[in-house]
């Protein structure tokens, strides 16, 4: 049972990393235009058009 001392914190930290990753994607507007992002993967632009500054 002593292994739990390691396993439980490890599982929480791994899950927490996932959560932190999700927060990061939220912060970077990655859910604004999911349909567009799905389509953009098909474009083979070397230098993508810049974001409008608004």
């Amino acid at each position: 049972m002593n292994v739990l001392v390691i396993l439980i914190p490890v599982s929480l930290i791994l899950g927490g990393l996932g959560l932190a990753g999700f927060f990061w994607t939220l912060r970077h507007d990655q859910y604004e235009d999911m349909e567009g992002d799905a389509a953009r993967i098909l474009l083979d632009d070397d230098d993508p058009p810049s974001e409008p500054e608004d």
Partner: peptide, 22 residues
């Protein structure tokens, strides 16, 4: 998306264009 963004950014007076497909 590509035709709109490329077409617009090619214009001299456009500094940036971003399509929201959704």
């Amino acid at each position: 998306v590509a035709s709109v963004e490329r077409g617009l950014t090619a214009l001299p007076f456009v500094t940036a264009a971003r399509v929201n497909l959704g």
